[in-house]
């Protein structure tokens, strides 16, 4: 059953999605390139928040999954159709997430953060080693895809992420995760298999990040481990998601858009100040907007409603 307010949300989301998806038909090349970056971070941050929002586990593994996807596409591009490679990247991402999740999600949050940070480095080292063995340095990913093609694939993946997130939120699994986030002991004593619930969501976010990496591989043309597994990506995703707010499905995107635009401007004009900017945003989140822009927006809405109620 879909309630009236939810139906409204679905309609608004669909319209926004169509406007976003049509960008190649009305936007400039610059806008399209910015659009790819925004779409990429929207997909990554939203799927990251699906897992980290309710569980409060901070994952820094995005780069590992993303790089895995990029390499899946890079290695298979000569032999398999691209859509098969995207699917394969998703399966491999989910598999890697399951392995990592089973090994670490029983541990407390701190160990999880450190392990996920190390994971990207580990996968990168394995691939570098593999390349050294075969005497390669990087991979060429040559396709006929245009920027517009890749952008629309990302938007489609984004739509799928929102749909899956919406379905999860309404499901028992989503409810279980909210209970786990509130009190894991209560969750277990209520009959929830807490490890399984966390691993399932982590698999979703791992699969999505890997698929994003696969879609973007043709854009890089030439991929090498340092590019595909850059740890900065993991941090950017965390910060954008927190900036937007992880307690709402639509939260991350309201962080991604302003952050990406400002970051692009800064890296074009003051390339050395990028890390400084990320650091400042992080401090602002921690000290001033712990619930992100989504929290602020909701606060303002409640405030204006209560004022309307008074007059």
């Amino acid at each position: 059953m879909i309630a009236g307010k939810e139906l409204q949300g679905v309609i608004v989301a669909t319209i926004l999605l169509l406007i976003a998806g049509a960008l190649p038909y009305y936007g400039s090349d610059y806008l399209l390139s910015l659009g790819i970056t925004i779409a990429m971070f929207t997909v990554l941050a939203t799927s990251w928040a699906l897992f980290s929002g309710p569980t409060h586990y901070i994952s820094l593994a995005t780069a590992a999954f993303f790089g895995l996807g990029t390499y899946t596409a890079g290695l298979g591009i000569e032999t398999l159709p691209f859509w098969v490679l995207i699917g394969l990247a998703g399966v491999l991402g989910a598999g890697l997430a399951a392995l990592v999740g089973l090994a670490t999600l029983r541990l407390s949050g701190v160990y999880f953060v450190i392990f996920t940070l190390g994971l990207a480095e580990l996968v990168r080292q394995v691939i570098t080693w593999g390349q050294n063995m075969t005497g390669q340095k990087g991979l060429y990913v040559l396709t006929d895809f245009t920027e517009a093609n890749l952008y629309q694939m990302l938007v489609a993946l984004g739509a799928a992420v929102f749909l899956v997130g919406w379905l999860i939120n309404r499901s028992r699994l989503g409810f279980a995760l909210r209970i786990i986030g509130d009190d894991e002991t209560v969750a277990a004593h209520s009959g929830i298999n807490t490890a399984l619930a966390k691993v399932l969501l982590f698999m979703v976010s791992g699969a999505v990040a890997a698929m994003t990496g696969a879609i973007l591989a043709p854009r890089y043309v030439y991929i090498e481990p340092a590019l595909a597994f850059t740890p900065l990506l993991s941090f950017q995703v965390v910060i954008m998601a927190l900036l937007g707010g992880v307690h709402r499905l639509w939260g991350p995107i309201v962080g991604v858009i302003p952050f990406t635009i400002i970051l692009e401007t800064i890296s074009a004009n003051f390339p050395n100040q990028v890390t400084l900017f990320i650091g400042i945003v992080f401090l602002v989140i921690v000290y001033f907007i712990p619930r992100g822009f989504a929290g602020l927006i909701e606060q303002m809405r409640d405030w204006s409603r209560s004022r309307e109620g008074l007059t």
């Binding site: 409810f175 909210r178 209970i179 986030g181 509130d182 009190d183 002991t185 209560v186 969750a187």
Partner: peptide, 14 residues
């Protein structure tokens, strides 16, 4: 031990 982000009803549904 209650679930702090939820209402009374949601706590019971849990």
């Amino acid at each position: 031990r209650l679930l702090p982000s939820m209402t009374v009803e949601q706590n019971i549904i849990a």
